[in-house]
């Protein structure tokens, strides 16, 4: 066998094959690396400009009478986006507080509350909204587009966005009191 080996022509692996193997390897590593990076990124960070998006709204929970809200139209106002779901127990802890905060700011017209219902069924969502007497704009997160935009890690999560459309604060998990919510909004209103 060894003799035959030596007799065989000393051909190295063709260059194109080497390039192909390494290119495939690097492609795979790049793919996995990018995905890993994405998974570890966490949510959108304070200081990030939120890109425009639009969201349909449940009837009865429209924003200024429109059944769809466009984020770009909210410039000039402080926006609070709350991700929730009717199957989410912790969401219930903060539902009443959010509504209370909304009622406090609604007359000023300077703050928008937006509820994004994450992978939920509408009948159950409506039962939930009714149960907690929620009146601010609410709609389904169709195709999880909005939650992917914010890279949410779960529900509930609440995002506070200033008048220029820049994210300023992220609350992961439920709020424990109305004052916590007000503290965030007031500091943004003061600007």
């Amino acid at each position: 066998m060894t003799e035959m080996n030596e007799a065989a022509p000393r051909r190295a692996v063709p260059l194109w094959a080497q390039i192909f193997v390494f290119a495939a390897l690097i492609g795979l590593l790049a793919l996995v690396g990018v995905t890993l990076n994405k998974r570890q990124q966490g949510t959108v960070q304070p200081g990030d400009q939120i890109p425009d998006f639009s969201m349909p709204l449940f009837s009865g929970y429209e924003y200024e009478g429109k059944s769809e809200v466009r984020f770009a139209d909210l410039r000039g106002k402080v926006t609070v986006i709350n991700f929730w779901a009717s199957w989410c127990k912790p969401c219930e802890q903060e539902a009443a507080e959010l509504q209370e905060a909304w009622e406090y700011y609604e007359p000023t017209g300077a703050v928008v509350f937006l509820g994004a219902d994450y992978v939920d069924t509408e009948p159950e969502a409506r039962v939930y909204l009714k149960k907690f007497g929620i009146t601010f704009a609410n709609g389904p997160d169709m195709g999880t587009r909005v939650s992917q935009l914010f890279r949410i890690k779960g529900v509930p999560e609440t995002y506070f966005i200033d008048k220029r459309g820049v994210l300023r604060y992220v609350q992961v998990g439920p709020f424990l009191s109305v004052t916590d919510i007000q503290k965030q909004i007031d500091s943004l209103l003061a600007e």
Partner: peptide, 10 residues
């Protein structure tokens, strides 16, 4: 790849 040739067998 470095040893590819040495591994060649008839």
């Amino acid at each position: 790849l470095h040893r590819w040739n040495d591994l060649r067998a008839e």
